[in-house]
Design a protein around this nucleic acid. Structure first.
Lengths: 233, 233
DNA sequence: AAGGACACGTGATAC
DNA sequence: TGTATCACGTGTCCT
């Protein structure tokens, strides 16, 4: 075992391999030189006090146990992650934090109430929680309008044109009204660009839907007016 | 700064503090003794090669950067956790893994409740909360499948054939998948009958969709298998 | 060969 | 007091 190269596992000190003492240089910051370690050492060595020895061993032992605990937890986390491949310890942690965020976002709407479609047509794009963690931003876009048979077709087309990655979409209907909510990840670099192109895509849907809806409406409710509002945040 | 105690920040070696060279003992595993480090050292020291010096510095610098990266991520994770108090690094990780597990657990019913389409085709009919109100029962039916252009047409037809009164329908899409949920009132007398006819109607949709989807899929993914599950409750 | 990632032992420090 | 945690520089492997 590597850890016993300098520090023997048993105090009786049975020779069990070729020995090579290393880590013998000390970098002297003051002079900027390498010096022999012993040069600057005083009495302290005196050699082989068993007390110091035992203390040192238990110290490094404890430290090793600590490392093992941490690494075990890291391994557990690696197993919990959707990503399978081998990973850097730092990148693993980065993945974990993005996982946690994602899960939190996914779990939220359960408690945050439902998106009931209102009476005014609406296109809304907002940014959720920009904690400057890893350059990725979460956008929440929503569209509220009348339901028409071709709505879903238009939506689907718009989705494929959407920038970033679509995490989730949710749609609810009430009466003849419908509200669709999208959750989209965007790179913080292209954030504003995505922002406006999402807005454009959804507004485009709204236009088409409005056209066909207005046609149908004018037959039945010629008096009804259409109110449209665009909201950004 | 502590990190410069042994290794000076500048290679010119300006004296900037009291110096105390430490880490000079080497624990000899073979003999079980402390020895002077220099005892077992040969020529190698020769003193002050600038090459070795620079290499050593860049090495420890890199290692420090790595540590900082990891610790930064750990700090971020600490901030994401519901627990506020100070925490052991290992216990922090333990908390993170339990948090991830819990979020996964919480997110699953949320996903099912919020009707996020999963990867398996599914027809589900269940009875919600029969509070013996007035002989009327609430049924919740859902259909999960690939999205195809004719899906909505089929759904619309099936709806008109449905028994009972359709209270609400909700639909969400993710990727190419779609999940539709119906809320239907039924008389408790005809409950079982409605149950099976709803099942039949949705299964019928699923069959049609599967057919057209499979046709499209066999061109692109000939190996992909369709898994269908029927769930009652 | 130049640099990244990891485990190690050690000094410092808090309780 | 002993017994934890942490940051550090280093050796070693891998690319």
């Amino acid at each position: 075992m590597y850890s016993n190269k300098y520090l023997s596992g048993n105090l009786s000190g049975i020779a069990d391999g070729p020995m090579s003492v290393k880590q013998t240089l000390v970098l002297d910051g003051e002079k900027g030189e390498l010096v022999k370690a012993s040069e600057t050492m005083g009495k302290k060595i005196a050699g082989s006090e068993p007390k110091t020895m035992a203390a040192l061993k238990s110290h490094s032992d404890a430290e090793r146990r600590r490392r093992e605990r941490i690494n075990a937890h890291l391994a557990t986390l690696r197993g919990l992650l959707p990503i399978s491949g081998k990973m850097d310890k730092a990148t693993l942690l980065a993945e974990v934090i993005s996982e946690v965020k994602q899960l939190k976002e996914t779990a939220r709407p359960a408690s945050e109430g439902l998106h009931v479609p209102m009476d005014t047509d609406e296109v809304q794009v907002e940014k959720l929680e920009d904690k400057a963690d890893g350059g990725s931003v979460l956008l929440r876009a929503s569209l509220c309008c009348d339901y028409t048979p071709d709505l879903l077709f238009n939506v689907k087309q718009a989705i494929s044109d959407l920038p970033g990655q679509l995490l989730k979409s949710e749609m609810s209907t009430l009466g003849g009204r419908v509200k669709i909510v999208f959750l989209i990840t965007s790179s913080s670099a292209a954030e504003e660009l995505h922002f406006s192109s999402i807005r454009a895509a959804l507004s485009n849907i709204l236009d088409k839907v409005s056209a066909s809806a207005e046609y149908a409406q004018q037959i039945i409710f010629p008096q009804k007016r259409r109110r449209v509002s665009y909201v950004d945040s």
